[in-house]
Amino acid sequence: MTQRQIEVATSDGIASAHLFGDAGAAAGVILYMDAFGPRAALFGMAERLADEGYAVLVPDLFYRFGTYGPFDAATAFSTPETATQLRSMIGGTTQAMTAEDTGFFLAALRQAGATGPIAAVGYCMGGSRALTAAGTYPDDIVAAASFHGGNLASEAADSPHLLAGKIRARVYVGTAGVDGSFPPEQSNRFVDTFRRAEVDFTLENYVGMAHGWCVPDHSVYQVRGAERHWRRLTALLAETLKAD
């Protein structure tokens, strides 16, 4: 399995990205980062997906801010200086920006040889980006998964649930049992909207898990919950990216 760093030219500059997978992988996955940026923990997750036979792209969504970090996922939000920096970067990287960038990410995967179906997978802030990508590029993205994604059905004008009518991908949402960024009122709105739009989706509640439980370097990482997420994710990808 190979790994290489590439540069993806976008409308706003050059986004650094890491590409995983052996040459000849026809199906691709865009892995949208959590708030702490591309790092070893996410690269390990990308390698695990690449081992399933996919070309996996992990782009830096914060590239507009230049050099930053690395951030310690276990302490970044408990340290005032890095917490302020992270909140500024999250707020300054809009859904619209990532949606536009995704067109270039898709092209990068195609150029790398992923000529088959594509999936979008995201964690934390990346979860909402994965769903937005599915609604923005319905002809390209056949599966989308969000794990501990926040604000998936908020009252914001760019909330991902508002794109439900455009999504043709199969969607999986894994939510932490208690998560202030995706409270019950949002999950109810999400389910109602996606059912009315006739989206093929699953929303699963991981009872006992906290926001961030899937990512190994997070302070609330939980092995059993993470392995459950891997079973769900690999099944989704096998059924959509490897379907005959």
Rank of each mutant, 00 (worst) to 15 (best):
T2C: 05
T10C: 11
S11K: 07
D12V: 05
I14F: 12
L19T: 12
D22S: 12
A25N: 13
D34R: 06
D34S: 04
A35M: 09
R39C: 13
A41Y: 03
L42N: 05
L42F: 11
F43V: 00
F43M: 07
F43S: 12
A50S: 11
D51S: 10
E52F: 00
Y54R: 01
F62M: 04
R64Y: 05
F65Y: 15
G66L: 03
G66V: 10
T67L: 02
G69W: 08
D72L: 03
A73I: 12
A73Y: 09
F77S: 09
S78W: 04
T79D: 15
T94H: 04
A96V: 07
G103N: 07
G103I: 07
F104K: 01
F104Q: 08
L106I: 08
R110Y: 06
A112N: 05
T115F: 14
G116Q: 11
A119H: 01
A120T: 03
Y123L: 13
Y123W: 12
R129K: 07
T132H: 08
A134G: 02
G135H: 13
G135W: 07
G135F: 04
T136W: 12
T136A: 15
T136M: 10
V142L: 13
V142R: 02
A144C: 12
A156L: 07
A164G: 12
K166T: 13
K166L: 11
A169H: 04
R170E: 15
V171P: 00
V171Q: 03
T175R: 15
D179V: 10
S181K: 03
Q186K: 05
V191M: 11
V191Y: 11
T193S: 11
R195G: 10
E198A: 07
V199C: 14
D200F: 01
F201S: 02
M209N: 04
C214L: 14
C214E: 12
V215Q: 14
V215I: 14
D217E: 14
H218G: 02
S219G: 00
G225F: 09
E227G: 08
R228F: 04
W230G: 04
W230I: 03
R231M: 09
